[in-house]
Amino acid sequence: MTDTNRPQTRRAHIGRLGEDLAADHLTGLGWTVLHRNWRNRYGELDIIAADGSTLVIVEVKTRASQMYSDPTLAVTPTKLTRMRRLAQIWLSEQERGWSQIRFDVVAVQLDSATPDDVARAEIRHHTGVFA
C-alpha cells in the first residue's frame, strides 16, 4: 500500500529537479515537450520532445553527488534497448509520423551541498546516443 501523504523522498526530489531543468533546457532550445514521464507496463520515457520534425526521446539522468563523474554513465545498453522498445510503443499510439527519431541524454549535475540551488546546476546534453 502506498502512502500518498508521505513526503517526497530525496531521490524523487532530485529526479524531479533534474527533469524540470532538462525540460526547461529543451524548451529553451525551441523544442516542444510533448510528454513527460510517459509510462506503460514496460517502463517510462522521461521526456518525449519535438525538435522541428525530429522526434527526440530524452533520458534524463540527475545526480546530486560527486560519486559519479558523468550521470550519463548510468545509461546502460539495457536501458537504451528499453527506451527503444518504449518509443516504438508510444509511436504506435500516435497519429502523426516523424521524419526522424533520435535518442538523447540530458545529464544534470546538481550541487551536492545545495541541490535546490538550480542556478549551480550543470547540464550536459548528449545528442544521438542511440540509433
Rank of each mutant, 00 (worst) to 15 (best):
M1K: 03
T2N: 04
T2W: 01
D3W: 01
N5H: 01
N5P: 00
R6W: 00
R6E: 02
R6G: 00
Q8R: 13
T9A: 05
R10L: 12
R11W: 02
R11I: 01
H13T: 13
I14S: 04
I14Q: 03
G15C: 03
G15Y: 03
G15F: 01
R16W: 04
L17Y: 05
L17P: 02
G18W: 09
G18S: 10
E19F: 03
D20I: 03
A22W: 10
A23L: 12
D24H: 05
L26W: 06
L26H: 04
T27C: 13
T27W: 00
G28L: 14
L29Q: 14
L29F: 02
G30A: 04
T32D: 15
H35Q: 15
R36Y: 02
N37R: 15
N37S: 15
R39L: 06
N40M: 07
N40W: 05
Y42I: 09
Y42D: 04
G43H: 09
G43S: 03
G43E: 08
D46H: 11
D46I: 05
I47V: 08
I47N: 09
I47T: 10
I48E: 03
A50Q: 15
D51M: 09
D51W: 03
S53R: 14
S53W: 02
S53F: 00
S53G: 02
T54W: 06
L55F: 06
V58A: 10
E59H: 06
E59K: 15
V60E: 05
T62W: 07
T62R: 13
S65E: 06
M67T: 04
M67G: 09
S69P: 01
L73V: 04
A74P: 01
V75Y: 09
V75N: 06
V75A: 10
V75R: 07
T76F: 11
T76R: 14
P77A: 11
T78V: 13
K79C: 06
T81Y: 10
R82Y: 04
M83K: 02
M83A: 09
M83L: 15
M83V: 01
R84C: 09
R84W: 12
R84A: 14
R85P: 00
R85Q: 08
L86G: 05
L86D: 05
A87Y: 10
W90S: 05
W90R: 08
W90T: 07
L91S: 06
S92Q: 07
E93R: 14
Q94M: 12
Q94L: 09
E95K: 10
R96D: 13
Q100C: 02
I101R: 13
R102P: 00
V105C: 15
V106Q: 11
V106S: 04
A107W: 08
V108H: 07
V108E: 04
Q109A: 12
Q109S: 14
L110M: 12
L110Y: 07
L110A: 03
D111L: 12
S112L: 11
S112M: 09
S112Y: 03
T114N: 14
T114Y: 07
P115I: 14
D116Y: 05
D117F: 08
V118H: 05
V118Q: 08
A119G: 04
A119E: 11
A119Y: 10
R120N: 06
R120F: 13
R120P: 03
E122W: 12
I123A: 08
R124F: 10
H126P: 00
T127S: 12
V129A: 10
F130N: 11
A131I: 02
A131E: 14
